[in-house]
Deep mutational scan, measured.
Amino acid sequence: TIEDAIKKLLKLAQKGQPYTFGDFTVTSEEEAKKLAKWLKKQL
């Protein structure tokens, strides 16, 4: 689910690992949080 993807994304971001989700490449926890907010709006 999208919720699971968001959780995984935040965990990876906390470890400092870049994470690619579709067109987004997230390289920081701050970016992960922005992406998570955006994804929730898409639901």
Rank of each mutant, 00 (worst) to 15 (best):
T1P: 08
T1I: 07
T1N: 08
T1A: 10
T1C: 14
T1V: 07
T1S: 08
I2R: 02
I2C: 14
E3F: 15
E3S: 06
E3C: 15
E3N: 05
D4M: 09
D4N: 10
D4H: 07
D4K: 09
A5F: 15
A5I: 15
A5D: 02
A5W: 15
I6D: 00
I6R: 01
I6V: 03
K7H: 05
K7N: 08
K7I: 09
K7M: 10
K8E: 08
K8P: 01
K8H: 11
L9K: 00
L9A: 02
L9V: 04
L10H: 01
L10M: 09
K11N: 07
K11L: 13
K11G: 09
K11D: 08
K11M: 13
L12D: 04
L12R: 08
A13T: 05
A13H: 04
A13E: 01
Q14C: 15
Q14I: 13
Q14H: 06
Q14F: 15
K15V: 08
K15T: 11
G16N: 06
Q17F: 15
Q17A: 09
P18S: 07
P18C: 15
P18D: 05
P18N: 06
Y19R: 02
Y19E: 03
Y19I: 14
Y19S: 04
Y19W: 12
T20C: 15
T20Y: 04
T20N: 06
T20G: 03
F21N: 03
F21T: 02
F21M: 04
G22F: 14
G22I: 13
G22D: 10
D23E: 09
D23Y: 15
D23W: 15
D23S: 13
D23I: 15
F24G: 01
F24N: 01
F24W: 13
F24Y: 06
T25D: 04
T25A: 06
T25W: 09
V26I: 12
V26Y: 04
V26F: 06
V26H: 02
V26Q: 02
S28I: 13
S28N: 10
S28M: 09
E29L: 14
E29P: 11
E30D: 11
E30Y: 15
E31Q: 12
E31V: 15
E31R: 03
A32S: 02
K33P: 01
K34A: 10
K34S: 05
K34E: 07
L35H: 00
L35A: 01
L35R: 00
L35C: 09
A36E: 03
A36R: 07
A36N: 01
A36W: 14
K37V: 09
K37G: 05
W38K: 01
W38F: 05
W38C: 07
W38A: 01
W38V: 01
W38Y: 04
L39N: 00
L39H: 00
L39K: 00
K40P: 01
K40E: 07
K40M: 14
K41S: 09
K41G: 05
Q42N: 04
Q42T: 08
L43D: 02
L43Y: 08
L43C: 09
